[in-house]
Design a protein around this nucleic acid. Structure first.
Length: 597
RNA sequence: GGCCCCGUAGCUUAAUGGAUAGAGCAUCUGACUACGGAUCAGAAGGUUGUAGGUUCGAGUCUUACCGGGGUCACCA
């Protein structure tokens, strides 16, 4: 808010004039006045009593006096304990509403020539099983973060690195070859990623049986795990794949394509996308030369078995392996390589990894290693670390069948949405296609808002039994408010009411309207804070606050029926702008809003 | 065990070191002949895990402990 800057400056000046002290503007703590007190902006005066050598009350009164005289927008003030509550003139708030109203992109900062280019990596699935609830959180956070960064004037490259190689893929391949009878997505009607996932499960079942059999024959568990025939088969496939054996590569290509086609459907349904997809099969050899360079430069060291390590004890961390004794890369090695590659390919200014908090240590180490290798971006990389999604019975475990599948979850929610909509009968006159689009829009809003409204850093609990609510602090609640606003605006147009978009700054404004205008004025701050703090939840919380306030207003005050034309116009403008912010804000969360629901 | 994160109402959660810890769900009560009741209002529900410390002021910072999770792989 512009007014805050002005007031901050004047407070610094007031203290200089009244108490002859220099104050750092950052010491000036301004906050929104709490609802139970009169005022709009509140100064916390405690930090200044040492300078004034007077009581908090007296200090506040003196600063208030000064502000009232020197800032035209400050109408009056009151003092409660150490808090100076400033009342800002309604004409100021109306001018803020006018400028918000005149700006179709209110709250959004468009990128320009000098904008930073940020690459965000998110999603990053394995190709041996379908996406689940954990991936949903990752995808929604990643997508929303990108939208928020863009809304703050950054250019963004959305990227996804697909883990399409390794022993886990070979397990599915082996199972398909052994027990698949040539099944395909077409022959079975099963979505490709699910079909491949089924074979991954099948592998595990057979493998377990083999282990038990070997133990029954008197072998140790360890031996059995290493020498079960399925495991040997999968390992052989991995070797063949790395040797580029044509038959193995062909099988790998075919099954991966099934998975990609399946993922595409899920991504589309979720509404997320990428500008650039990396495949680990193409990047897994990257990084080795960087590690060898580090070794040559004495940054890393080699053990007798010729494995290469980084010593991070100076940073308070452990030893970290970078190349195996057979000279092959590990995960960390690849990440060093891909990081370098990305900065070269795109000339990005910043790299953000959307990866769960179980990898905090990994990214801490990655940052240090890149820095040691002399890459200036090492220290600047950001691990957007988010918490796990837990079920009532704890962590999701594929072995216990508690994994919540992404496709199933979305389908179930759409079904709930359809039933609710039909019961309420709000979509009469819509074609089945229009109605279907709306059900889906509502279901996804429920899911997305549910996951995005909580602080990304925290673990969250998801209860599939209770499913997700459509009432209260939810996506559909916000959509409903939007639909209502649109309905009012449609009716206004039907009745030939013309909206005058320039409000006279002397218009009489009620308390509730003022409250809403203040909230409207804070939208740009919410967008900025969401970016500064990497938190879509801040946008969600803001929208909820705004919508709750609007619903109260809507309940108590007539809009179209209001007889005073000036007030009616003001209320229409407020409604219009609240609607605009809901739409823009929800877009930042990757959520669409319907005209009717 | 070392390191890291988290403990807020029955449940899910909010709160740049600032005023009486704010919501939603669930429970109970009330409000449609105004513009959409997927709404609104009210009631009840809290020693912010426990005990100290710093501060004019602590859910927030700090120490110890208790409880939960993560991580410390020649896996990714």
């Amino acid at each position: 808010m512009l007014i805050e800057l002005k007031i901050r400056d004047q407070i610094v000046e007031a203290i200089e004039k009244c108490y002859h002290q220099q104050v750092d503007p950052s010491l000036v703590q301004l906050q929104n006045t709490r609802e139970e007190f009169e005022g709009d902006i509140t100064l916390v005066v405690f930090p200044f009593v040492r300078m004034s050598k007077k009581s908090p009350e007296q200090t506040a009164a003196e600063i208030g006096e000064y502000l009232q005289q020197h800032v035209a927008e400050v109408d009056k003030f009151n003092v409660v304990k150490g808090f100076l509550n400033l009342v800002i003139s309604s004409s100021y708030w109306l001018s803020v509403l006018n400028s918000a109203s005149a700006n179709a992109n209110f709250g959004i900062t468009e990128p320009n020539e000098s904008s930073k280019l940020v690459m965000v990596e998110y999603s990053s699935p394995n190709t041996n099983k379908p996406l689940h609830l954990g991936h949903i959180r990752n995808n929604l956070l990643g997508f929303s973060l990108c939208e928020i960064l863009k809304a703050n004037g950054n250019k963004v490259v959305k990227t996804n690195i697909v883990n399409d190689r390794g022993i886990h893929i070979c397990k599915s391949m082996y199972a398909w070859k052994m027990w698949g009878n040539g099944q395909t997505p077409e022959s079975t009607g099963i979505k490709g990623d699910h079909l491949v996932g089924n074979f991954y499960v099948r592998f595990d079942q057979e493998y377990k049986k083999e282990i038990e059999a070997l133990i029954g024959q008197g072998e140790s568990r360890e031996y059995a795990e290493q020498n079960a025939i399925s495991m040997l088969g999968a390992r052989e496939m991995l070797l063949k794949w790395e040797a580029k054996d044509p038959e193995t590569v062909e099988l790998w290509t075919m099954m991966n394509n099934w998975v990609y086609n399946g993922f595409d459907v899920t991504y589309k349904e979720l509404g997320v996308d990428f500008d650039k997809i990396y495949y680990e099969s193409e990047t897994y050899l990257y990084g080795k030369e960087e590690v060898l360079r580090g070794l040559a430069e004495g940054i890393f060291y080699q053990q007798e078995d010729s494995s290469v390590w980084a010593d991070l004890s100076a940073e308070g961390l452990d030893q970290k392996i970078l190349l195996r004794s057979d000279g092959t890369s590990v995960y960390m090695t690849q990440d060093i390589g891909t990081a370098k590659e990305r900065f070269q390919d795109y000339h990005i200014n910043k790299m953000i990894y959307v990866v769960g908090n179980e990898q905090n240590y990994h990214f801490q180490v990655l940052s240090i290693l890149l820095d040691k290798l002399g890459f200036e971006f090492g220290k600047g990389l950001h691990h957007f670390s988010y918490g796990m999604v837990e079920l009532p019975q704890g962590k999701m475990k594929s072995r216990e069948g508690t994994v919540v599948d992404a496709d199933d979850l979305m389908a179930e929610m759409i079904e709930v949405s359809r039933k609710t909509s039909e019961e309420l009968g709000k979509l009469e006159g819509y074609t089945p296609e229009q109605a279907a689009i709306t059900y889906k829009m509502i279901a996804l809003a429920a899911l997305k808002y549910f996951m995005l409204k909580v602080d990304p850093k925290k673990n969250m609990l998801f209860n599939p039994e209770e499913s997700i609510d459509f009432n209260g602090n939810t996506g559909p609640f916000i959509q409903y408010t939007y639909a209502r606003i649109r309905s009012v605006l449609r009716k206004a147009a039907d009745r030939g009411i013309e909206i005058n978009h320039l409000i006279g700054t002397e218009t009489a404004v009620g308390m509730k309207e003022l409250q809403l205008i203040k909230l409207i004025s804070q939208f740009p701050d919410a967008v900025k804070e969401a970016s500064d703090n990497y938190s879509p939840a801040l946008v969600a919380n803001y929208i909820y606050e705004l919508v709750k306030e609007f619903n109260q207003f809507y309940h108590y005050f007539p809009i179209l029926i209001e007889e005073n034309v000036e007030i009616r116009n003001l209320r229409l403008i407020i409604s219009e702008n609240v609607g605009k912010i809901i739409k823009t804000g929800m877009k930042l969360l990757g959520i669409d809003v319907p005209e009717r629901m």
